[in-house]
């Protein structure tokens, strides 16, 4: 078995463990490369048809390419798609200009809370990876959240071997991170091997490409001529710039990510 197979097999194992315990669950699809890979593997885990809904948290500030991709593959992969929007906050005119922390918190974390409340999901699959950010490296595969969504990073449950947390206290939900052990490079090698369709913003146009995508307002492209998966892999093998370099929220304050995450951010 090669390394990518090992990663994939473990991810399938975790997805199936999650489903075995929490039938009432959902997958969070940002339509970026990681969650699209997770979706791809989830389809494999369930032999082509994911038996639970897929949530897209829509801040309404996303790139148009993301919306196009969503509508195309939502149909092609037969997804039961839930679009999660914090309509109230949007009506009140919240936007990144009025503070990135507040914007992320309202349009992502708060929107997700509303959707979770509405559908009463007990478990959420998320495609975060340990190599993305030091705070994410501390995560568990099965990471419980309280009713207020808070991540109690100071007192996380033990997680031994592949024996994941199976029971929840009432009012809790659990974040499940089946891609935690993948790196950015692994993801691209896997996308190339599997020929996974991916939003074209990742591929260089006029000397620029996005390494990480989210809201149009808070993502900047990096200098690059990599316009194929092969070239992206080559680029990543030598780069010394970190993946989320183009993301605004990580930079503003060294602890913003930790603060956001402890409040329930992804």
């Amino acid at each position: 078995m090669n390394y990518l197979d090992e990663l994939e097999n473990k991810t399938i194992y975790i997805i199936r463990e999650a489903y075995a315990r929490f039938r009432n669950m959902s997958l969070l699809w940002s339509i970026g490369k990681d969650s699209t890979s997770l979706l791809w593997i989830a389809r494999k885990a369930f032999f082509g048809n994911i038996p639970f809904p897929v949530i897209h948290i829509d801040t309404s500030f996303k790139f148009k390419e993301i919306y196009e991709f969503r509508s195309k593959y939502g149909k092609e992969w037969n997804l039961n798609l839930i679009i999660s929007k914090n309509k109230k906050a949007l009506k009140e005119g919240i936007s990144p200009e009025k503070g990135k922390f507040e914007c992320c918190d309202a349009l992502k974390t708060e929107a997700l809370k509303q959707t979770l409340g509405e559908f009463n999901f007990k478990a959420l699959l998320l495609a975060i990876r340990r190599d993305e950010h030091g705070i994410r490296a501390k995560e568990r595969y099965f990471s419980p959240r309280g009713i207020d969504f808070k991540w109690n990073y100071k007192d996380q449950p033990a997680e031994l071997w592949d024996l994941y947390k199976s029971q929840l206290e009432a009012e809790q939900h659990i974040r499940i991170h089946p891609m935690l052990h993948w790196t950015e490079l692994d993801i691209w090698k896997y996308i190339r091997r599997e020929k996974i369709p991916i939003v074209n913003l990742y591929f260089a146009k006029n000397g620029k490409r996005y390494r990480s995508i989210g809201c149009k307002t808070c993502c900047l492209p990096v200098d690059s001529n990599a316009n194929t998966t092969r070239k992206i892999i080559k680029e990543l093998e030598i780069t010394k710039i970190s993946e989320r370099n183009g993301r605004a929220q990580d930079k503003e304050n060294s602890y913003t990510m930790q603060k956001l995450r402890s409040l329930g951010y992804m």
């Binding site: 190599d131 030091g134 490296a137 501390k138 990073y153 052990h181 790196t183």
Partner: peptide
């Protein structure tokens, strides 16, 4: 160090 972390 409070929690375990992973680095590549």
């Amino acid at each position: 160090t409070i929690d375990t972390t992973q680095i590549f």
